[in-house]
Design a binder for these strands. Structure first.
Lengths: 248, 248
DNA sequence: ATTTATTATGCAACAATTTGCAGCTTTTTA
DNA sequence: TAAAAAGCTGCAAATTGTTGCATAATAAAT
């Protein structure tokens, strides 16, 4: 294998996974780690990757959501981990596009083989980095604020899907109003997604619980699973449990 | 074996395998490595292959993996500036998803009001940042390598559009083969885009001119405008001008 | 057809690049 | 703070490239 080929392979891996480990590269193409390090140094010098201890990171990317800017990342990662455990090989999964969903996308295990439908640009981008996940984008007009496709076209596409799971990050959830949101178009899409899935999983940081917005997405009865960063046994969650929701 | 034959054989091997080792060639046609090296030097000088330590690479090899050639950002910005000048208020614009298109997206003037259709995730993201541009995403299965939607669904959606302009970044263009690419699905989409637009604009850094890939997108006769980073009067562009293309 | 000029090829000596290894330093992690 | 992992440096071996030159092949001219 020529040096250039090797470096091209490395770049490809970086762009695919957003990051690489020297050790992995070394074993997957059978050259010493020294060589990999030297390659990474060259690629870093010419500005194609960012070198870090143990490997390298993709440069161009992460422009969508800089992780550090995301509000409450830690909580969202806890939620994302719980969410990921629900996804099994071969499933059809429908997801919205909040930051919690993005965190989930990043935590999907490498070997998971599943099909993801989404109308969210950042979510689709994350899914597309994954080696074994098939991504179907539900197109339509892009709502700027939320970066997701909204409109009749998207909704009618969603209605033709029959998914196993639907993951929604929500902005407000309480006992009285159920799930509520503030953007009419987005609500229509979320609604269609819930209807198109056998099971609906709602992800919310506890801060957003027991608050409500103006437009109703659905009642609690249409939700199957609620994920928060809290311990499932936390007493704040009791009322939801009593309403028949599974708490993770 | 004549020199010309030998070089033709080398070119064939390169286009077949994307790369060759001097040592392999030397043993398979029984000439000294010196001769092979001299041949490779000539082929490299005339721009037919890229010579590297130990052998040579196909020109198309580059665009295969090295998606983020930071080297050419300058060229691409020159191209993007020229491209932007073609877009007027109220237009319907259809675009692909190469890095040149992304550069163009970033250079769109703030006050431009237009509607952009695309199947490319990064391009859609850039358009969505713009205050006055309406973005319609053409959804379907996302091809991982190129991050664009491909498939029958996307193509049939494109066929329902009647756009004023279509911008395509291309990986290879030459007089003999027209525009060529290496991914079947992507070619289908590009094809549909060309048909759906009144005018087609092709953007290519000069490096990619006079090289070709395996699959044909369209002939030069289906293109209206060619944009490169070169001066429009550059003699390299003469043959294209003679084929009826407008050069910017 | 023979000579001459030009080009192509192979060889050998030397230069440069690439790569893996060993020893040591730095960074990370528990 | 100590062990483990990763990085750096210098070095040696192997591979690849370069250059000058002799020889062979080809084309051109007489």
């Amino acid at each position: 294998m020529l040096k250039k080929e090797r470096q091209a392979y490395i770049l490809h891996q970086v762009s695919l996974h957003n990051s690489v480990l020297s050790a992995d590269l070394s074993s997957s193409i059978n050259v010493s780690e020294d060589t990999i390090r030297r390659d990474l140094n060259e690629l870093a010098e010419s500005g194609k990757v960012i070198k870090v201890h143990g490997g390298a990171l993709s440069k161009s990317f992460n422009s969508f959501y800089l992780r550090s800017d995301v509000y409450n990342v830690d909580s969202k990662q806890v939620i994302a981990e719980k969410a990921v455990s629900l996804i099994k090989d071969g499933m059809f999964v429908l997801t919205g596009g909040g930051t919690t969903v993005i965190e989930m996308a990043r935590l999907l295990p490498e070997n998971l083989k599943a099909t993801f439908f989404t109308g969210s640009i950042p979510a689709a981008y994350e899914y597309a980095q994954h080696p074994n996940i098939e991504v179907i984008f539900i197109g339509d007009k892009i709502a700027k604020k939320s970066q997701i496709a909204v409109g009749g076209e998207a909704i009618s596409k969603i209605k033709h899907i029959k998914a196993d799971l639907c993951f929604l990050g929500v902005n407000a959830i309480d006992l009285e109003h159920g799930i509520t949101d503030s953007d009419w178009d987005v609500v229509q899409v979320k609604n269609a997604m819930i209807e198109a899935s056998s099971q609906t999983v709602v992800m919310s940081i506890s801060e957003k619980m027991n608050s409500h917005h103006r437009i109703r997405v659905c009642g609690l009865d249409e939700i199957d699973i609620l994920i928060t960063e809290l311990d499932p046994a936390d007493s704040i969650l009791d009322p939801f449990r009593l309403n028949g929701l599974t708490i993770l």
